[in-house]
Amino acid sequence: MNMSGQWSAVREDLRSQWQASARVRLGGWAILGILSIYGVLLAQDHADARRVELKQLEGELSRLRSLAREKVWPERAAEAERLSQALSSMAWSERDIGLTEAALQDWLRTVPARLGLKTRELSIARVESGKTDAGAAPAATAGSSDIVQALPPGHVLLRARISFDAPQRAALMVFLAECARSDRSLVVERFLMRGQPAFAEIDLRVLARVQETG
């Protein structure tokens, strides 16, 4: 018997059992019913997933439309631009950063000398994000690192440390006042005075602008 004949015999046998046995028919209909229910459940799960996805997309679209109508963001952008311009106007700025550092150093030597303060040591360093100054106080270093990340483009942060031998307290107060009154950025981060003979040390944070070269 060939393959076609075998399949014909199987079909005839199944048909005979289907017609002769109510139990076989009941079982067959039960299987078809289960498969139908399973198919319906799968389709329903897929439809539910699509509805959830669509609802999420609609919510995101609604949020974006609300932001597009919101006037706060342009106002915040304008405020940020004004702050950036204000910072830039306070920055130390020469033709290049080397000349800027030289101008700062000259100011930090000239003003104390005029007040009768004897400078022991003066150092200026650029502060880079992620790098720390081994001689700086930990709190000042962490704060400067955060400020570096928030600087407007084209600006760098400098840290100056100046120390004085046997300073007069009145002269020191005048020097600190000169720093505060300066039109250009000079922020006192740390002030230390101790010892006999007296010794004073001041850490300053300075904003500088980097000039673009053509």
Score class of each variant (00 low, 15 high):
Ala198Cys: 04
Trp7Cys: 05
Leu14Glu: 05
Ala180Gly: 01
Glu53Phe: 14
Ser182Glu: 11
Ile34Ser: 09
Ala77Cys: 06
Val206Gly: 06
Ser21Gln: 09
Arg205Met: 11
Met3Gly: 09
Leu186Cys: 07
Phe175Trp: 12
Arg120His: 14
Tyr38Ala: 15
Trp107Gln: 10
Thr100Asn: 06
Val187Phe: 13
Arg23His: 08
Ser89Thr: 03
Ala49Thr: 07
Met173Ser: 12
Arg63Gln: 10
Glu101Leu: 08
Ser88Arg: 07
Thr132His: 08
Ala180Glu: 07
Leu42Thr: 03
Asp13Cys: 14
Pro112Ser: 03
Ala49Tyr: 12
Ala77Trp: 02
Gly33Tyr: 06
Arg159Leu: 14
Val188Cys: 05
Phe164Arg: 01
Glu12Gly: 10
Glu60Val: 13
Arg23Ala: 15
Glu75Cys: 01
Leu14Lys: 01
Cys179Pro: 02
Ala30Gln: 05
Leu99Val: 05
Ile31Ser: 09
Trp7Thr: 07
Arg82Asp: 14
Leu157Pro: 02
Gly27Trp: 10
Arg120Ile: 08
Asp203Asn: 03
Arg15Ile: 13
Gln85His: 10
Leu172Tyr: 11
Lys71Cys: 08
Tyr38Phe: 12
Ile162Gln: 02
Leu186Tyr: 06
Ile162Pro: 05
Asp48Leu: 11
Met3Cys: 09
Ala78Glu: 14
Pro152Leu: 12
Glu70Asp: 15
Glu81His: 06
Arg95Thr: 13
Leu204Gln: 02
Leu54Glu: 11
Val10Tyr: 03
Arg114Gly: 14
Asp106Leu: 13
Leu35Asp: 05
Val52His: 07
Ser88Asp: 15
Ser145Tyr: 00
Arg51Asp: 13
Leu83Thr: 04
Ala43Glu: 08
